[in-house]
């Protein structure tokens, strides 16, 4: 497999021979996978298997030590930070801890508006866009005036999703998005993600350790163990 020449694909995300090292430790050891537009690929494995390092390298939050990450046909690993900037909004992360990913000092409305402001897309339609996004993730737009600590975990996770959607992404990297949520609100958040995918054609790279959730939610799944993919 590793000897095959690099091949052009129409996959939205095409990761080939990804390597991430921390000193002498190889956390991700020649991992390859693809995610098509509108598809959900689940990545699971025990803690310490290299899932999070893979996610960081795919998002170019940590530059990989080897391999290629093609997104919308462009090789990301050789791009400069400046060249990456216009691409970043199109691949957005949603993290496990719904409170940790929101600033406690910012109102919900501002948290959702932030990507628009940072990307220079804030204009007179901004407030209406924020209201629309909150409504889209099933939150009463009146919550926009609240602070994160006034919301439940499930509501905060919906805010995190609204914030990711503000960038109009094509790929969401969902890192254990329901693991920290109360059982009674998990199914609602999974349903929301399924609806958004149907409606917007989003692709998901879905990190999850719960096999039943993976089976229900993902089109395909791959498993990592000590830095490598387990053969299917």
């Amino acid at each position: 497999m590793n000897d095959a020449p690099p091949h052009p694909t129409d996959a939205l995300l095409d990761v080939q021979d990804l390597v991430v090292r921390y000193g002498a430790v190889t956390a991700v050891d020649h991992v390859s996978f693809t995610v098509d537009a509108g598809e959900t690929l689940a990545l699971n494995g025990p803690s310490g298997c290299g899932k999070s390092s893979t996610v960081a390298a795919v998002l170019q939050l940590r530059r990989p030590d080897g391999g290629e990450v093609r997104f919308e046909g462009r090789e990301l690993t050789t791009l400069t930070e400046r060249e990456l900037r216009p691409l970043r909004p199109r691949m957005q992360p949603v993290f496990q801890d719904p409170y940790g990913s929101l600033s406690p000092r910012h109102r919900i409305r501002d948290a959702v508006a932030e990507p628009l402001r940072v990307q220079g897309r804030w204009d007179p339609t901004g407030p209406a866009r924020v209201t629309e996004l909150l409504d889209r993730v099933g939150l009463n737009p009146a919550y926009g005036d609240r602070f994160p600590h006034e919301l439940s975990g499930g509501q905060c996770q919906r805010v995190g999703i609204a914030r990711a959607l503000a960038s109009e992404p094509r790929l969401l990297v969902l890192d254990e998005p329901v693991s920290a949520l109360d059982p009674s609100v998990r199914a609602g958040v999974l349903n929301l993600l399924a609806d958004l995918q149907d409606e917007l054609g989003l692709a998901y790279l879905f990190i999850c350790h719960d096999r039943a959730v993976v089976r229900h939610f993902a089109d395909r799944s791959i498993e990592m163990r000590t830095g490598r993919l387990v053969p299917a």
Binding site: A194, S221, A232
Partner: peptide, 16 residues
């Protein structure tokens, strides 16, 4: 359950 190409099954909403 590595891969399962049931495209329709995923669209089924969970009771919530």
């Amino acid at each position: 359950g590595h891969s399962h190409g049931v495209g329709g099954a995923r669209r089924r909403r969970l009771p919530a």
